[in-house]
Design a protein around this nucleic acid. Structure first.
Lengths: 134, 134
DNA sequence: GTAGAGGTTCCAGCTAGCTGGAAGGCAACC
DNA sequence: GGTTGCCTTCCAGCTAGCTGGAACCTCTAC
């Protein structure tokens, strides 16, 4: 498939795909006779992985490192294990914090639910609306 | 406490704290007679919240919105509830993705653990080391 | 009273991660 | 064969989120 289709499929701008290639996140793809980039499902999976990791707050540098580990899957070693452990510990902390944040929000919502019946006017709206007004 | 101490406590650069104030994430603090910013535990808690939310991948704009909800806690209403629900749904998705990513990494580590005894040399090291070399 | 650490404002510049535009090539349809 | 649309490279510019530096003030210790 061409770059446009890949981008469409994953919701990623073709520009971004070329950019990822330029910084070594995606391998240089095959080219058609006319020079167009040609991608396959492996590329799509990889791009999906990048986007998922990114949504979780990983920097592209970290993603690159993880992908490198994944790519060279043949003979991992002690060093690799430490890299992975660090990453997992990091994720665990994020999980915990996300849980806490979620708890806070849910508690807020409880308060919202109990405080007002179906009222649609409150000071908060004004507050929040300021976002849209310059 | 002064800006330096607050920063120290939370691991945040004083510059960053002033920046947060300038974009409305932190309220304008009290000032000492000589014009120094003076903070209390409430500010520390708020800054901690901001940093936690940020580590989870929330943009400062979103953090601002959540803080606004929190601040105006007196009379939440229907609109507020929808904002919160959206945020919670978002978090749930992130939680799920984080779990998946964690699973992948742990699987990778299993492979590492079983493949090599205590070997410290492998192709991966070279690969990963390229990061440090220009 | 002077040195040094830490505070102030203001303004400029930086990194990460894209994104837009120019200038042109290729493919497919009418 | 011309138009439309997607592709190419290259280079510049953008937003978010800081961060560094200049120029100056203030507190504390010697």
């Amino acid at each position: 498939m061409q770059i446009g289709e890949l981008g469409e499929q994953l919701g990623v701008n073709p520009k971004t795909i070329r950019y990822y290639e330029s910084i070594g996140l995606l391998p240089e793809p095959a080219r058609s006779s006319s020079g167009y980039r040609v991608y396959d499902e492996t590329d799509a999976e990889r791009l999906g992985f990048i986007k998922a990791a990114q949504r979780l707050g990983l920097a592209l540098d970290e993603v690159r490192e993880i992908l490198a580990l994944r790519d060279g899957g043949q003979a991992p070693c002690a060093y690799v294990r430490t890299v992975i452990s660090r990453e997992v510990a990091d994720i665990d902390q994020r999980l915990e914090e996300l849980h806490r944040l979620r708890g806070e929000l849910v508690a807020l919502e409880q308060r919202a639910r109990s405080a007002s019946g179906e009222g649609t006017i409150c000071g908060l709206i004004e507050h929040v609306r300021q976002k849209s007004a310059p």
